[in-house]
């Protein structure tokens, strides 16, 4: 597998999609600190934008996996690997590892550039070092989850264009689901600060009343679990929330990676390749 990874890594470094994706990420990593500084001046707090990458790194991974792995099918070079005597399991794992490493590398580039631009403008992130490291760790695991999901789809679709469309659509579907779940979870338990007009036409402040959209007990637990399970939910929580269940998120990422990889290897071993 070492040979496969070495060959894949060399090709990844020359891959146009990877290079263009990295350039786009660098552009975004410069944009956020600069725009925050221009809007808020000295009031800009890096915490507000520093982890934004966890929102859109999934798009990068989805496009990278589908284009990089799709080339193996569209140009027929997957055949070279099989004819060279590599097992399908090794081919799958090598592809997954290289796509994951490339995505982590892109994320690292984003963080470094954002720090280099952001710290002189807006100062350091106002968090303890362990908290920052935990967020990086969860982000890395989230990238691993994304990579394993999109590798699975790309390896099972021999049509490069179809795989690209499916991957990107899936990312946005997961993102919309996470947004909906988080919005339900963020509903307040009581409706407060409302007024009503009494019979005499006076404005009367109302007593707090239960919010029908507020989730309780099992539905709330299920929603919370789904938010922690979905990589997009993890990304949203890291961007918007101070506290999050990072231990459960890490466990979910390990589960997603293991599940999709086992399923992918199983399906790829039975796949007829043209």
């Amino acid at each position: 597998m070492y040979k496969l990874m070495w060959a894949n890594g060399r090709r990844m470094l020359r891959d146009k999609a990877f290079r263009i994706g990295c350039v786009c990420l660098i552009g975004v990593s410069v944009y956020f600190p600069v725009s925050y500084h221009m809007d808020l001046g000295d009031q800009a707090i890096p915490n507000n934008y520093f982890f934004y990458f966890s929102l859109f790194i999934g798009v990068f991974v989805s496009v990278l996996c589908s284009l990089y792995l799709g080339t193996e099918y569209s140009e027929g070079t997957m055949r070279n690997k099989l004819i060279a005597g590599h097992t399908r399991r090794n081919i799958y794992l090598a592809n997954l590892i290289v796509c994951t490493l490339a995505s982590l590398f892109a994320m690292a580039v984003y963080i470094v550039v954002e720090s280099l631009v952001g710290i002189p403008l807006n100062g350091r992130v106002q968090m303890d070092l362990p908290e920052i490291l935990i967020r990086f760790l969860v982000s890395g695991c989230m990238v691993l989850s994304f990579s394993s999901i999109f590798t699975l789809l790309s390896m099972l679709h021999q049509n490069k264009a179809a795989a690209s469309v499916i991957n990107v659509l899936l990312f946005f579907a997961l993102m919309l689901t996470a947004v909906y779940l988080l919005s339900r979870l963020s509903e307040s338990e009581f409706i407060e600060n409302y007024v009503y007009i009494d019979n005499l036409g006076n404005l009367v402040p109302g007593d707090p009343m239960p919010n029908p959209l507020y989730l309780t007990k099992t539905p709330r637990a299920v929603c919370e679990f789904l938010c922690d399970l979905l990589p997009t939910g993890q990304g949203l929580q890291m961007c918007t929330q101070i506290f999050f269940r990072w231990g459960r998120m890490m466990g979910c990422n390990v589960g997603i990676t293991a599940g999709t990889t086992l399923l992918g290897i199983f399906a790829f071993q039975r796949k007829d390749i043209k």
Partner: peptide, 14 residues
């Protein structure tokens, strides 16, 4: 299979 080389249908090149 390592003892064989093949060009199946279209040439497999990057």
């Amino acid at each position: 299979r390592r003892r064989m080389g093949a060009v199946v249908e279209t040439p497999s090149v990057y």
